[in-house]
Nucleic acid binder design. Structure first.
Length: 650
DNA sequence: GTTAGGG
DNA sequence: CCCTAAC
């Protein structure tokens, strides 16, 4: 029966040359999706807000990551093996001097900062004693601690800095530097081995429950969760609030149903998430529900994750430049500390005009950045590539939104008082959101004055000051942690950012990264230029994150054609094994799909073709192979005609 | 888990 | 690339 079925397909296959319909429809679909993605932007703004709120709910679910043990092991061994090779690269890359600072100088800077913090601590505390960032979760990591950035404990908070006059620049720089640079280089992995591709496995944003250190480490180690907010403050803030939480390992795989069910659920969840997000439903609820609501939803998330991993097999294996979730959410908290702004009060309606406010960044994640790094790439090219990507990310700019009791206050001209925001009463209900500037009407792409005033001083600045760097994941595990001790400052990147846009943190944020550099494994005949591949263009939350689109290179096409010539169509698993075995991000389904499109491409006129041109010679082989196997398989349903192809396709 | 196909 | 159906 199975054979019969296949025969039927084969017969259809014969018409392949005339199956323009498939591609066309596909195109239409793509187009549609693109639009959809644009719409998803609406979710973008919501994420930030939501994230923070979820932290509190989500933590405790730290559980055992349900990752494939073998894979984890593999990754582990790999990292350990090449740690020494990787580390240097990181340093080199970080030394790129942009602006005044060099990353390599970070250690010293960190210490200095620490000292500064100490000296100004009292003063600062009086102003923002409770200001904290989720990102300090980084500090939780042992290595961070070694740099003196470590937070005192559960209730640790970001070192208060002078907040009075925060400057956007500083903020920017520090913020991104911290976030971006770190991320980018943190996982740079360069080894002598052929660059294998690294899948972003973006879906794997995992929240960490900071409390569970082991878990955390584990996650980091696996590279699945490189960064997560940690609940430094005991206050409950915790974990990763990012929507991606759904896929988070933190959710214990309570049970493992059959994959089919998982896929189904994953699919459903994704759809639901997308729809909801697009619909503008408060992400808070959406995510909150998913993450907290109980085991049910969590399970779903878990399933997604699992499914992803299995189906895509996208676990970065060899080169991962950086993987970071991108959510940046901050929540301003309010216990307005009673420090005055010294602006000279006027009315007293709200009775607290000049107060400094305590703000807390509950979550801070960074976007994924992947880069294709051919072995023959130079450090310079690597730098340029990273720079380009970062710049491209930044170009969107960022905008801060203010929510009062969940309601977005759009009138920028209103005074806080007019908006009903009083230090005494309403501050507790204020939230900030980070929105991608592009796609939004906000003119300058710069933060709005009022907001800036508020944020700058109290919230952003501290953030900018964060010195803690995430340690090399491997470090935690490795015996020799010496290397891991080195912090990776990202001053250079931050500087870049600052140039691009004033308050960029957001760009990397929730927008889920507009782009990413993706390391692509060296396809059989890959041409080795650095290539940047957009990552999750949609900026949608990572919930239903679609895999990044990675166009086949000519080399890959060639390998595919060669494999199909030998194995025939219909044996995609074998094709995968034969020609793409070491390329994690190309699944046999991908190969099958690619073949489908190749056949179509070959059957249309060159003028109608799009994308990177495929040599006519290859297309000819595609048609020949397709025709051959279509016929051949009909005659001999399965197997047995292995050598024929060679005859036909030398 | 694979394969074929439609979207 | 995603999602499903069918095996």
């Amino acid at each position: 029966m199975m054979v019969r079925k296949r025969l039927v397909y084969r017969s259809r296959g014969r018409r392949i040359p005339t199956m323009p319909r498939v591609p066309n429809s596909a195109r239409g679909k793509r187009s549609t999706r693109r639009n959809k993605d644009e719409n998803d932007m609406c979710a973008f703004d919501l994420l930030a807000t939501v994230a923070g709120n979820l932290l509190a709910d989500q933590d405790n679910s730290s559980n055992v990551p349900n990752t494939n043990a073998a894979k984890a092991k593999k990754r582990k061994s790999f990292k350990e093996e090449h740690f020494d090779e990787i580390l240097p690269l990181k340093d080199v890359a970080m030394e790129k001097d942009v602006g005044s600072g060099s990353v390599s100088a970070f250690p010293r800077q960190a210490n200095n900062c620490l000292a500064e913090n100490s000296s100004t601590r009292n003063e600062a505390e009086s102003i923002l004693e409770s200001l904290t960032m989720k990102s300090d979760m980084l500090a939780k990591i042992p290595e961070c601690g070694s740099h003196g950035i470590h937070h005192p404990g559960p209730s640790s908070s970001v070192e208060p800095e002078q907040v009075q006059k925060a400057e956007p620049k500083v903020i920017r720089r520090q913020a991104d530097g911290h976030a971006v640079a770190y991320d980018i280089f943190d996982s740079v992995d360069v080894n002598g081995k052929p660059p294998a591709l690294v899948s972003s496995d973006s879906s794997s944003c995992v929240p960490l429950s900071s409390h569970d250190k082991e878990h955390q480490t584990s996650s980091l180690y696996q590279g699945e969760v490189q960064y997560a907010a940690d609940r430094d403050d005991d206050e409950n803030s915790s974990g990763c609030t990012h929507p991606s939480t759904i896929e988070n390992k933190g959710c214990k795989p309570q049970y493992l149903g059959n994959h089919r069910i998982r896929k189904l659920l994953a699919s459903k969840v994704r759809k639901a998430a997308r729809n909801k997000i697009c619909g503008g439903i408060p992400s808070k609820k959406i995510y909150g529900g998913l993450s907290n609501k109980g085991s049910k939803l969590n399970l779903c998330g878990k399933k997604i994750s699992t499914t992803r991993q299995k189906v895509q097999r996208t676990i970065f294996k060899k080169k991962k430049l950086a993987h970071h979730t991108t959510s940046f959410a901050k929540e301003m908290l309010t216990e307005a500390s009673r420090t005055s702004f010294a602006t000279g009060g006027q009315n007293k309606s709200c009775e607290s005009e000049n107060y400094h406010v305590k703000l807390r960044i509950k979550s801070f994640n960074i976007p994924e950045l992947f880069i294709k790094v051919p072995e023959n790439a130079t450090i310079g090219s690597l730098k340029r590539t990273v720079m380009d990507v970062v710049n491209s990310i930044m170009e969107g700019g960022l905008r801060v939104g203010v929510l009062l009791q969940g309601k977005d206050i759009q009138d920028d001209n209103k005074t806080l008082r007019q908006a009903g925001i009083c230090h005494d009463k309403k501050l507790n209900n204020i939230d900030f959101t980070l929105q991608c500037e592009r796609e939004r009407e906000s003119p300058s792409g710069v933060i709005i004055p009022e907001q800036m005033d508020f944020l700058t001083a109290d919230m952003v600045e501290p953030l900018a000051r964060m010195k803690c760097e995430e340690p090399f994941p491997e470090a935690d595990v490795g015996d020799d942690n010496q290397h891991s001790k080195a912090p990776y400052r990202s001053r250079s990147l931050s500087d870049l950012y600052s140039v691009q846009c004033p308050v960029e943190m957001a760009s990397q944020d929730t927008s889920a990264s507009s782009q990413a550099i993706i390391p692509v494994s060296p396809a059989p005949s890959d041409i080795g230029a650095l290539a940047i591949v957009p990552l999750c263009k949609s900026k949608r939350s990572e919930i239903g994150q679609r895999r990044i689109r990675r166009p086949f290179t000519v080399g890959e096409v060639e390998a595919l054609v060669g494999a199909v010539e030998q194995l025939g169509t219909g044996r995609w698993r074998a094709v995968k094994t034969l020609a793409f075995d070491n390329i994690e991000h190309r699944t046999y389904v991908d190969l099958k799909d690619k073949w489908k499109t190749l056949v179509h491409t070959a059957s249309i006129s060159p003028q109608q073709r799009r994308g990177q041109p495929v040599p006519q010679e290859l297309l000819d082989r595609v048609l020949a192979a397709q025709a051959y196997w279509s016929q051949h398989l009909q005659d001999k349903p399965r197997g047995k005609a292995r050598l024929l192809p060679e005859i036909c396709f030398p």
